[in-house]
Amino acid sequence: AVGHNFTYASAREFVRTRIAGSAGAEQGRTRWLEEIWEAWDGNRALRNLHPLTPERFRRAERMNACALPDAVKEHPYARYDIAVREERPTPACSLIFLATGRFETIRKFAANLADTLPDDCEVIACVSSKDPDALRFLQEKSGIRVVRITDIANTRQAWTAGVHAATGDILIFISTLVEVYGDWLEGILAAFEQGDTTVYVPRIMHHHASRALLFESRRGQYNAL
């Protein structure tokens, strides 16, 4: 079994109470509350964050919700950037995909997203209501919002439903047949930042070993429409 501890990702008063009752010198606990916990809002680049053995938590990094354990998807703190105090900001972009193809293809695609997405991108899966396996799997995945589609074969209707659910300023449409690696999404966002076009199509190439579709890995290599 795997446990997930929210001791240092909880409401302020809870953390204060928990630290006050923990083992260790009182002076060290007081220093941590003043120099780390209370100072965090003003400097989120602080290092050595653990209250008792500082080097255990070298630093804090933002991550996409897809990279969080699925077990915490419905946790009451999941919607917060800072527990109970600051909600997650509006995402910079919305990634929308149709959950089509074999179940293993969908599973692998979701895993690749968790490994590659920046923290400020939301993920929306348009899933057929007639595909219980894909529906159950994606509903349980952390960081993925599911939109039920009656007729997934009607791709225009499915994409439109995903657009209506999106909250980001930039919309990214992608197939589960595409394998994504590295900073592929940052490359697309960079194209929007550097250009004055509203639609970009990334280069796609075939991987000869598996015939899988791969996004061009070099940033900025996109065709404007």
Rank of each mutant, 00 (worst) to 15 (best):
G3W: 15
D183W: 08
Y200W: 11
E86H: 09
E186K: 12
L98S: 03
K130M: 14
G101E: 05
V146E: 03
I19E: 05
L113A: 03
V146T: 05
P132N: 08
L135G: 02
A165H: 01
D41A: 13
T197G: 13
S129G: 13
R102F: 13
A71K: 09
F137G: 04
D183Y: 08
S142V: 07
E74N: 15
F137N: 07
F173S: 04
R107I: 09
E122P: 01
N48P: 09
S129F: 05
A166F: 00
S175W: 01
V147F: 00
T7G: 06
I149E: 02
R58M: 09
I204G: 02
R107T: 07
E26F: 05
R59I: 11
E87I: 13
P51H: 06
T197H: 12
N154D: 10
G42Y: 03
C121K: 03
A191N: 06
L98D: 01
K73E: 08
E179K: 08
T167N: 03
T30W: 08
A165E: 01
H4L: 12
G3M: 14
G21R: 02
Y200P: 04
A60R: 07
F14H: 11
I149T: 02
L113Y: 03
V163S: 00
P69T: 04
R47V: 14
Y77H: 06
G28F: 01
R31T: 10
I106P: 02
V199C: 10
E87L: 12
T7F: 14
D169M: 04
E35D: 15
V2H: 12
W32M: 05
D119E: 15
H4D: 10
V123T: 06
A1I: 13
T198W: 04
N5C: 12
A11V: 07
E216H: 11
T176Q: 04
A83Q: 03
V127W: 01
